[in-house]
Design a protein around this nucleic acid. Structure first.
Lengths: 227, 227
DNA sequence: CCAATATTCTAACGACTATTAGAATATGTC
DNA sequence: GACATATTCTAATAGTCGTTAGAATATTGG
């Protein structure tokens, strides 16, 4: 009620909190951490109706978590600050440490069917340097294009069946997607195993990998998002 | 609506966001990051009515951000995870980078009246090692007691007038309090200057200082909070 | 076991949020 | 300039949150 300066600052932080307080917006932020996107793409990928998507994006913009850029008739959204993704990972870390429910839920997705642990980032990096594994990025192609782990090949999940013939069978395949709340890579691993590959999962996404200081290939900002 | 496993995880994260979406709760978390506290202490220090405080604490507990411990008839709250404080600093960082308003607001509090910049943590540490400054912790005594910067003296703000006679006048005094959203230290600096001291402000609080890996003196958990 | 104290639970009000239909705006194309 | 397209704004409804009074619970000390 009394907006003293300290309260004013806290209220702005509370706005950020409020922006993080909805499933849909967290999903959108996770997407934006992968690549800048148009409203329509976001709506399609997240399965949120367009108008709701627009409304959620407005909240994110007003909280200072996202910004826009016009690209012709399209409006392209991106994270306002690279640190935003860290907020979500910090929340996930706390949730996993505190709540057995959340631990179980993420495990159910990410643990290998045969009970093997996902590959750690450090180990993957070592094996990549030695050329021991094939790393595939199973996100949609536009996300790969904007930023991917150095050395990864783009094999979007829906093209996996077609492209798996081209993958070398004499070494392990490691798949990754958007990170800890994304299930594309887990599905890919399951399918690859069924097809006879030695396949593993990397739980990290590009933003996590990048934050560890590991090499990421990034495309300069000038990209046209729609051709 | 359809609580698929991925949505279930996101909903738990959204609960954390919702818990961060209120001025009062951010204030409480900031307090808890300093020291564990009883409901009553929290209510007093934050000026939030007891019943509201209790309600907010319940939200924090249910989101997994705080936990309790009983101490006789008192219930003592503490952060459930040391990482929780990082969430708030990350939000503040984003807000300051994105919003000129927030920058101005925090500056108005923290910039020295004569326009000097606050002391940085690294510099303070160097000067402390050399014995060049007197470091005072102006938070309430119980917070100092539970954790303080190594080498700091406890001079709660309301005892400053009485104790300032004991401070050496031949070297600079540096004051700190809870961190970036706390104004005790800024007030202390202003008063010390008026009293003729060379006084500087440290913007960091104990949790920030600790996170940098700098030395903190911590009291083991067995403390009785009320004597 | 009773009283005293600290805290939480229950409930109810008003204030805010989510969703989404329909109108409005902005950009590009012909 | 008229038209098509992408997006946002306006508004209205249903649902959720904040606050706080009053009842209920838990612990300690007699």
């Amino acid at each position: 009620m009394a907006p003293n300066p300290k309260h004013a600052v806290l209220d702005r932080l509370a706005d950020i909190g409020a922006a993080l307080a909805h499933r849909a917006r967290l999903q959108i932020l996770d997407l934006l951490a992968q690549a800048e996107q148009t409203v329509e793409t976001i709506a399609l990928k997240t399965n949120i109706p367009l108008k709701s998507t627009s409304a959620h994006l407005r909240v994110l913009r007003e909280a200072g978590l996202a910004t826009t850029r016009r690209e012709g008739t399209f409006v392209v959204y991106r994270l306002a600050d690279p640190e935003v993704h860290r907020l979500i990972s910090a929340m996930l870390g706390i949730a996993e440490r505190r709540s057995a429910d959340v631990r179980d839920l993420t495990r159910r997705f990410f643990d290998d069917p045969d009970g093997a642990e996902p590959v750690t980032a450090t180990e993957l990096r070592r094996r990549l340097d030695r050329g021991e594994v094939t790393l595939i990025d199973v996100r949609p192609a536009d996300e790969y294009q904007q930023a991917h782990i150095a050395g990864a090949h783009s094999v979007p999940l829906d093209t996996l069946a077609r492209h798996s013939a081209e993958l070398p069978r004499d070494r392990a395949v490691v798949a990754y997607c958007r990170g800890a709340t994304c299930v594309l890579a887990a599905t890919a691993v399951r399918r690859l195993r069924r097809a006879g590959f030695t396949a593993h999962l990397l739980r990290d996404g590009v933003p996590d990998w990048n934050r560890r200081g590991f090499p990421v290939v990034r495309q300069p900002h000038t990209t046209r998002v729609h051709p």
